[in-house]
């Protein structure tokens, strides 16, 4: 704010202006200040309103049905008053874990390859292309999953095809851009002298990468994986299309599963009364999970910036 008024003072020497003009400048400065302040707060405010709304609709339901009968019961039959979301919590965790098992190693390996083993000029071409992946609408990922991946799994591994495995693979690919671009940034932030020092001590390229650079960049890489987890937990459309949406605890990776997000989106259209509240309560659980993941990511990032300083 201080800067803002200084620049305008220099631009139009206030001494040369009439009192009216000066008043106008003062007004527009302060006006600008409050306009930007409002804009900045509106983002925070909308988050607050969303949180309040979900909590207002969902928490009374959780209290009414009971914590145990909601979170830990495995029967979901809203027409008969049974609202157990335990299978969906487990499924969400499995799908996310599966996506991380596929996305994290690929993403981190990709980031190492692009920063260490490829000329800069090549990386400058490939990195934007990977970031384009993030811009592909999730419906398209889901469509590819339904048309290609699910029939492939069905004919080669058995089961209905629409499965935990299919959802994990699709999500694993969807989170790649997040993992790769944040990992690249953190690896690039490692001082060049670390690598040079390791090489000078006689370490091979690979040894210096995994013993020195990855060590130095590990908190940023962990943050990238946690952010990717947040994305995987929250993804809805692609998961609805490829996961099959059965409400049960999966016995194998070929079983069909329903995640928390899928549950809300699938039944939202028809839900009334208690059923609708149950979906909001599902949203509360999801909200809490995503909040926890994001705070973990932020904590990891903070550790990284402290380490760098």
């Amino acid at each position: 704010m201080q800067n803002l008024s200084n620049t305008s003072d220099q631009a139009s020497h206030p001494a040369n202006l009439s009192a009216g003009k000066r008043f106008t400048t003062w007004c527009s400065d302060h006006l600008a200040r409050y306009v930007f302040l409002t804009v900045a707060f509106s983002a925070t405010l909308s988050l607050l309103l969303i949180a309040l709304f979900i909590l207002k609709e969902g928490v009374p339901f959780i209290i009414k049905v009971g914590f145990k009968d909601f979170l830990l019961a495995s029967e979901w039959s809203p027409m008969n008053g049974k609202f157990g979301i335990y299978p969906m919590i487990i499924s969400s965790l499995w799908v996310t874990l599966g996506a991380m098992l596929i996305g994290a190693p690929l993403g981190v390996a990709g980031a190492i390859f692009l920063t260490q083993f490829v000329p800069r000029s090549v990386m400058r071409v490939i990195k934007p292309m990977i970031e384009l992946l993030a811009g592909i609408p999730s419906v398209l990922y889901g469509f590819i999953g339904v048309m290609i991946l699910a029939p492939f799994i069905r004919s080669h591994f058995g089961g209905p095809g629409l499965s935990l495995l299919a959802a994990s693979i699709i999500l694993g690919i969807m989170v790649l851009p997040t993992v790769i671009s944040i990992s690249i940034d953190t690896i690039n932030a490692v001082p060049r002298s670390y690598l040079e020092g390791a090489l000078a001590l006689g370490a091979t390229r690979w040894q210096s990468v995994h013993m020195v650079i990855l060590k130095a960049a590990h908190s940023g890489i962990i943050a990238s994986v946690i952010l990717a987890m947040g994305r995987a937990v929250g993804e809805t459309m692609a998961v609805i299309m490829v996961a099959g949406n059965s409400v049960k605890i999966p016995g194998s990776s070929l079983d069909s599963v329903r995640t928390l997000t899928a549950n809300i989106a699938l039944e939202m259209g028809y839900a009334t009364g208690l059923h609708r509240q149950a979906l909001f309560a599902t949203g509360v659980v999801l909200f809490v999970v995503v909040m926890i993941l994001n705070s973990l990511a932020m904590a990891a990032m903070k550790k990284k910036s402290r380490g760098a300083a």
Partner: peptide, 23 residues
């Protein structure tokens, strides 16, 4: 049955059955 695949419209049910020989 809890093993049932759930789809959220008549259209997606149709597509699933068209795609899967055993559904």
């Amino acid at each position: 049955t809890k093993d049932a695949i759930i789809q959220d419209s008549n259209g997606t049910i149709r597509e699933t059955v068209v795609m899967d020989q055993n559904s």
